[in-house]
Design a protein around this nucleic acid. Structure first.
Lengths: 154, 154
DNA sequence: CTTGAAAGAGACACGTC
DNA sequence: GACGTGTCTCTTTCAAG
């Protein structure tokens, strides 16, 4: 499965604005509507397109505090890891969780209302998970850049 | 400006799947199509809805390496910071950039093809920016959780 | 891949209550 | 806020080149 320049153009356009109509999209990339629609459909079925979604301004929802937390699990074994991830997946404040290389085990992205809520979250929800031994917090001062557009080449 | 439960329901649904039709959306949240459409429009105009976008599977695009990089700028003054952010905004490999509290200044999320490309990126694109004195890399082993759904309450 | 046609669905602006 | 109506555009499928 290899993507040609039309597929890439479709993906780029949809990443910028998924509400574009198939008609406009086909004009934009220089294909007929039928060909364009078939490709978009195909990209969805192949799993290249995972989801159409909406980016919401967290600030305007009253969620003012964004934080990244690095977590060390100990002991780091399959049991504690599985249980940790199970809990993480249940917590709506955790938007992202990555297992990473380096001297920390996990990196979490957190969104909450304010700092007091953040403090409660860390103590009550995070530190209370068995195996979570140390956490290191970085509060986001400002989002300088944020895009979902994966480069489609290089 | 305060959002009621209908607005929240709209936002939750659109975050899950922005390709839902207004008809289905109105059924889902229990409003008429006209009321539902007016609210969605309003949320867009208010800036609560920032963008409709598409989540693409980076792996299937051949972008196998995701990394988080923490950057220390020195000297950290307005000039180096501005220039740094200017360069960052030009680099398509940098999907996200946050200024953060703690002993690092910035946190970047990077997506590239493979590790050799990553090495080149750090040396040629990142370290070559004046003021970038130290970087600390965490390669993503696995994405354990990833959602864009901002909690609409709490 | 393209073009063209045809049918169905949804968007959207109006009124009215 | 709900509902109905009408128009218009887009989607979607299907031919045939």
């Amino acid at each position: 499965m290899t993507l040609d320049r039309y597929d890439r153009a479709i993906l780029n356009a949809l990443q910028k604005d998924s509400s574009i109509s198939n008609l406009d999209l086909s004009k934009l990339i220089g294909l007929s509507t039928s060909a364009c629609l078939a490709r978009t459909k195909n990209l969805k079925e192949l799993g290249v397109i995972k989801q159409f979604t909406t980016i919401v301004d967290e600030r305007r929802l009253g969620m003012e505090t964004i934080a990244f937390i690095m977590v060390i699990l100990s002991p780091l074994n399959r049991e504690t890891a599985n249980f940790f991830l199970e809990q993480i997946n249940k917590l709506p404040q955790v938007l992202e969780c990555y297992s990473i290389t380096g001297n920390k085990d996990y990196l979490l992205k957190i969104v909450v209302k304010d700092m007091p809520t953040y403090k409660d979250f860390v103590i009550d929800s995070l530190m209370s998970i068995p195996g979570v031994s140390r956490v290191e917090t970085s509060i986001v001062i400002n989002t300088e850049k944020r895009t979902l557009s994966i480069p489609t080449e290089d």
